[in-house]
Simulated scan of single mutants.
Amino acid sequence: MEFVLVGFSDVPNLQWILFGIFLAIYLIILLGNSIIILITRIDPTLQNPMYFFLGNFSFLEICYVTTTVPRMHRDIWTQKGNIPFLACATQMSFVLIFGGTECLLLRVMAYDHYVAICNSLHYPIVMNHRVCIQLVAGSWISGIPVEIGQTCQIFSLSFCGSNTINHFFCDIPPILKLACGNTIVNEVAVYIVAVVFFMVPFPLIVTSYGKIISNILKLFSARGRAKAFSTCSSHLTVVVLFYGTAAINYLQPKSNQSEGLGKLLSLFYAILTPMMNPIIYSLRNKDVMEALKKLLPKLLT
Rank of each mutant, 00 (worst) to 15 (best):
T78I: 07
T183P: 05
C118T: 03
Y243M: 04
F202S: 02
A89I: 03
L60Q: 02
E187Q: 13
Y243K: 01
V136R: 01
D10V: 13
N166G: 06
S142D: 01
L299A: 03
G224M: 02
M72N: 10
G161H: 10
I144S: 04
I76E: 00
K80E: 14
K293P: 05
I29R: 03
V4G: 00
F57H: 04
V193K: 06
L267H: 00
H113P: 03
D75T: 11
C63W: 14
L217C: 13
I29A: 05
N33R: 05
A24K: 05
L267V: 06
Y243V: 02
F19D: 04
Y114T: 05
G143Y: 02
C160R: 14
S221Q: 04
L241W: 01
L86K: 11
R225A: 00
K227C: 08
I280H: 02
V240Q: 08
R71K: 14
A189V: 05
I62Y: 10
I141H: 04
I216N: 02
H167W: 12
H73G: 07
S139W: 04
T40S: 15
L251S: 13
I97P: 01
F202E: 00
F98T: 09
D112W: 07
W77D: 06
N56R: 05
H167R: 12
P253L: 08
L157I: 12
M109F: 03
W77T: 10
L217F: 12
L106G: 00
I29F: 09
A24H: 07
A222K: 10
I133C: 13
I37N: 12
K286G: 01
L296S: 04
L5F: 13
L106C: 06
E147K: 07
F155P: 03
L5T: 01
V190N: 11
F8P: 08
L60Y: 02
Y250W: 15
L46H: 01
A89V: 03
L292K: 00
T78N: 07
G7S: 09
F3Y: 08
V188A: 12
L18S: 09
A89F: 02
D287M: 10
H167G: 12
I62C: 11
K218P: 04
F229S: 01
S34K: 09
K211Q: 14
F155T: 04
